[in-house]
Design a protein around this nucleic acid. Structure first.
Lengths: 177, 177
DNA sequence: TAGCGCATGTAACGCGTTACATGATTAC
DNA sequence: GTAATCATGTAACGCGTTACATGCGCTA
């Protein structure tokens, strides 16, 4: 899809190993994109073959050797081109919970109510995390440079999306039971 | 993922051909789930083999024969079981626009601004459609039966999501340029 | 006469997940 | 001694997209 670009974006910050990237997906970018380590490793190899990344083998003792990857000039150009050219279609939600709601009837009402509750608490958890990050990393949005402003705006989007979804859960629950 | 269940859900309304389903994805369910006709046809065959659907070949003249599919008892049971058992993890957004925002800098600011504008107008278009459906099909939500209440709640979610996203676009635009 | 609607299909490819695998070090 | 962390990989499978294919009838 666009994992290549996601990885190159993460490497704007500097050299990273596949392992680093996998962890990175658990924090910053990970709120809207994730990938397994298998996928990451194979994508890194592809990108290196294309000359968009360069690889540096770093021997270690006690641990397996690691390979750090870095954006090449060519890679940076490819990333810039992607931003210029790519048309961004709005994503499809593909949420199983919504499919279940299409099946709502007397027999499954309580089950579905329960699943809405679960969803709400997951959202609440995410929201708390996002808020924490906002306070600790972005307390003064006026002072951010461009790149961090972009990241901040994504975070804000995540926060508002979570709030909206939580409100929707409440609304759904007030309608069924 | 769960295309099988989505199709079975669509068949709750009655017999449909693959072609009908493909069209159905352009309206009702299609706001949050979509599938190509190739995918639909192959999934239908799989489901029939499993005994979850039964197929009825209907000869036509001037047009190719069509095959109508119907949920079997077994299929209905499988669908109910799915609702009982399946854990619904929150979806990942995987939105390329957000990846681009992570790349925000002086050189691409205007391009990205443009893409946000495009996104906003797509959202506006969807929102208009959802509102139209709400007014024409769900003018009296209190009087809906269970199943249609579920569908209504999904629609409401779509409307609020679109509104929220539009507001976010405006916010982003006020921050960059 | 060109294109759209109806109706179904095959083939190739890439994306993504799950399972399986290794092997030392460090923390509880 | 049990589990987690570090660090990378292979293999098998299924989901999803794109391209290609057929062929009649109707409308502009």
């Amino acid at each position: 899809m666009a994992l290549a670009e996601v990885i190159m974006t993460a490497l704007l910050e500097g050299r990273k190993t596949g392992y680093d990237l996998a962890k990175y997906f658990d924090v910053s970018l990970g709120y809207f994109w994730r990938a397994s380590h298998q996928q990451i490793y194979s994508e890194l190899k592809k990108l290196e073959k294309k000359g968009l990344l360069s690889a540096f083998k770093i021997p270690q003792q006690g641990k397996p050797d690691k390979i750090e990857y870095q954006l090449t000039e060519q890679g940076k150009t490819a990333l810039d081109d992607w931003i210029q050219s790519s048309s961004t279609k709005p994503r499809l939600v593909k949420d199983e919970l919504l499919v279940m709601l299409y099946n709502l009837d007397d027999s499954n009402e309580l089950e579905i109510r329960q699943k809405i509750l679960e969803r709400k608490s997951q959202l609440q958890k995410s929201l708390n995390l996002y808020e924490k990050i906002r306070i600790s990393n972005f307390s003064k949005p006026e002072e951010l440079d461009k790149r961090n402003l972009g990241i901040y705006l994504v975070l804000i989007g995540g926060i508002e999306d979570a709030r909206g979804s939580i409100a929707w859960c409440d609304q759904v629950m007030s309608h069924i039971s």
